[in-house]
Computed example of a mutant assay.
Amino acid sequence: MKLGVFTVLLADKPLEEALDYIAAQGLEAVEIGTGGYPGKSHCRPEELLADKGKLNAFKKAVEARGLTISALSCHGNPLHPRQEVAKSYHEDFMHTLDLAERLEVPVVNGFSGCPGDSDDAKYPNWPVVPWPNEYRELLDWQWSEKVIPYWQEIGRIASQKGILIGLELHGGFSVHSPGTLLRLREAAGEAIGANVDPSHLWWQGIDPVQAIRLLGQSSAIHHFHAKDIAIDPVNVNKHGVTDMQPYTEILGRAWQFRSVGCGHDGKVWGDIVSALRMAGYDHAISIEHEDAIMSVNEGFTKAVHQLKQVIMREPMGTMWWV
């Protein structure tokens, strides 16, 4: 495994300055945003694809610092019911796939997206209960008419390019749990897998270790985000885990994203890394910083310190004692 970081937390720094900062922390991998919600502050795929000189300079900037690119990340909603919105996210994703192929980056991360409730809808609609029956009917329509057809085609293209798709299991999107990921993978092919982020599993009541074991049985883990969460024992009983208050409501929310080790201790994170090892995952542990009460520098460096204690870099070796 390699310890890495999702570079969007350093969006205010030029690429080479951000890479210098990352390398100085002893990291080995970077995940770079290429569009959608993460933006393109460090990488504009359409420009790199059109200019070989810029492409080579980009690649050299990463390699010269002893870093590898674990994934290109284009998190958007390509299933958005408004066609102009969906088109923008889709085009960014396709450019990202092309760039990953050119750079020989193995994984492209993103969201599954979420359709609306009809072809005339203006906003996404995320049904989360099976009754009244309209919600179940809506969910069936979304998957059969929108989710599966779209990702079947993307899975086919990704397979041709030799690229894996890491869909983040994130609330608000059609794929948000191990079960929904495996459902889509069965329909769209093995290029489709998970970008596992424990923080989004915890607030849904899913144990990340068990999720990793479940996904690992199907070799369905393509990337991993290291991000923590703290659930407030009082506020969660008032607002529930689907708390709709903004993240800026730090004192009142049911849960908050935290830096690694500030929501769950080292033993828990050690168990997660061990589960990844047993599932056969040997790619990047990519830090994602979204801690509202820490600066980027403090939250990032604390996460690096915590993960260096538990990450497994060497091969398993032989069982000499057996």
Rank of each mutant, 00 (worst) to 15 (best):
K2A: 06
F6K: 01
V8N: 14
A11R: 14
D12K: 14
L15T: 09
A23H: 05
Q25G: 00
L27V: 07
E28D: 11
V30K: 03
Y37V: 08
Y37S: 04
G39R: 12
S41G: 01
C43M: 12
E46T: 08
E47D: 07
E47R: 15
L49C: 11
K52P: 05
N56A: 15
F58E: 08
K60H: 15
R65L: 01
G66I: 08
I69D: 03
L72D: 04
G76C: 06
G76R: 07
G76A: 09
P78Y: 07
L79C: 05
L79N: 04
H80N: 11
Q83P: 00
Q83K: 13
E84A: 05
E84Q: 14
E84R: 12
E91D: 15
E91N: 12
H95D: 13
L97G: 02
L97K: 02
L103Q: 07
E104V: 11
E104A: 09
E104T: 14
E104L: 08
E104R: 13
V105I: 04
P106N: 00
G113D: 09
G116C: 08
D120Q: 14
A121M: 13
K122E: 14
V128M: 12
L138Q: 05
D140M: 09
Q142Y: 03
K146P: 00
I148P: 00
P149A: 14
W151E: 06
W151C: 03
Q152L: 09
I154A: 09
G155H: 11
A158L: 06
L164K: 13
I165Q: 03
L167G: 00
F173W: 13
V175Q: 05
G179F: 13
T180V: 14
R183G: 02
E186P: 01
A187M: 11
G189P: 01
D197K: 04
D197A: 06
S199T: 15
L201G: 02
Q204I: 02
D207C: 09
V209W: 03
L214M: 15
G216E: 14
S218V: 10
S219E: 15
D228T: 08
I229G: 02
A230I: 15
I231T: 06
D232C: 03
K238G: 00
G240R: 05
M244R: 10
Q245K: 11
Y247N: 06
I250F: 13
A254K: 04
W255K: 07
Q256S: 10
F257L: 10
F257G: 02
C262D: 11
D265M: 04
W269D: 04
D271V: 02
S274N: 13
L276H: 04
D282R: 14
M294P: 00
S295D: 09
V296P: 02
E298C: 11
K302Y: 14
P315W: 11
G317S: 10
